[in-house]
């Protein structure tokens, strides 16, 4: 999926490690699974704290309701499944039982996006960001790598309200440092630049960094922003970058029509007028294939970002 420059680390394992640490620190942490505990790694928590892990079976609606009931009784709840089952399948339960009453439930999903691979379109969730960011009271986080996953999980625990945390299946490039600060709602500038801004989320941040290297070869200094909180969106950082660089490209492993890129476009549209392009999956379902092949076929590549950046640069000149 990425060039050899990156160390590849599993976010799922980082999640499990953090859950176990939290389980030891806090007695109020309760974890729910829906027959995917070994895949989402909540099984690791279950091994350590069997009395505080409940497997609800293939009944995600019930899982979300139980999560709400536990939270109403003061528990800090993690409910985990695949992105496809933790959002669309349970949208009403998340809306009514969790988001509306502002329950302290953290919906941590794995296997988001097209890189799920062989399972195909039925399991490749590419519109979850849209569903979750539309919900009042919901916070939407896409940790960029294993370090950020750990920090996001910890931040969610001390956050008043529900969160949606989106992780992938595959190992992902480690693009941050262990000591980098993380705050919900704060975007991080990964690479400085003055000519164009590349805003990435999730695995596309690494692609943006690689794209910035490519662009530098052509004398273009691209700024790279890791937009790991989709909601609340860090509009301040975005507007500043748009003003200073004069053009913006977004990149996400998600439907391009309703994801981070559209959130960014809306925010910029109301604040600063600069040329923009969005890289992501077009308005289409995915299919089976290797992660790398799918990324290539659906345009989630360094090339796409570089091309989009050149297009923005051309339009900037007009």
């Amino acid at each position: 999926m990425a060039s050899s420059r990156w160390k590849m680390v599993s976010q799922r394992d980082a999640y499990a490690e953090t859950l176990v640490a939290l389980g030891a620190e806090r007695k109020d942490v309760v974890v729910l699974s829906a027959d995917l505990s070994s895949s989402v790694r909540t099984s690791v928590f279950a091994d350590h704290f069997p009395e505080r892990h409940f497997n609800i079976g293939i009944a995600e609606q019930n899982m979300m309701g139980i999560a709400a009931g536990l939270a109403a009784s003061g528990k800090t709840v993690f409910a985990s499944t695949f992105a496809i089952f933790g959002t669309g399948r349970v949208y009403d339960q998340v809306r009514q039982s969790i988001a509306y009453p502002r329950m302290k439930v953290n919906i941590v999903v794995t296997h988001a996006g097209i890189t799920v691979g062989g399972d195909g379109a039925t399991h490749q969730m590419i519109e979850d960001i849209a569903l979750m960011r539309g919900l009042p009271n919901m916070t939407v986080i896409v940790p960029v790598d294993a370090y950020e996953t750990k920090k996001a999980i910890r931040a969610a625990v001390s956050y008043d309200g529900p969160t949606y945390i989106r992780l992938g299946r595959s190992e992902v490039p480690l693009v941050t440092q262990e000591n980098d600060p993380f705050e919900i709602g704060k975007a991080a500038t990964m690479v400085d630049g003055k000519d164009v801004t590349l805003v990435g989320t999730g695995i596309m941040v690494a692609k943006c960094i690689e794209a910035s290297d490519e662009l530098r070869k052509h004398g273009v200094e691209a700024r790279v922003i890791n937009m790991s909180t989709i909601k609340p969106l860090d509009v301040k950082t975005l507007v500043k970058a748009a003003r200073e660089t004069g053009g913006v490209v977004t990149a996400e492993e998600h439907s391009v029509s309703v994801g981070m890129g559209s959130a960014v476009a809306l925010a910029l549209g109301e604040n600063v007028h600069v040329p923009m392009r969005r890289v992501g999956i077009e308005d289409t379902f995915g299919e089976s294939g290797e992660s790398e092949e799918l990324m290539e076929k659906y345009g989630l590549t360094v090339e796409s970002i570089v091309d989009a950046a050149h297009d923005v640069l051309r339009r900037k000149g007009r």
Partner: peptide
């Protein structure tokens, strides 16, 4: 249809 699940959560917490 959602209240019984919440009740299960509350009973588990108890």
């Amino acid at each position: 249809g959602q209240g019984l699940s919440m009740g299960v959560g509350m009973a588990l917490a108890a």
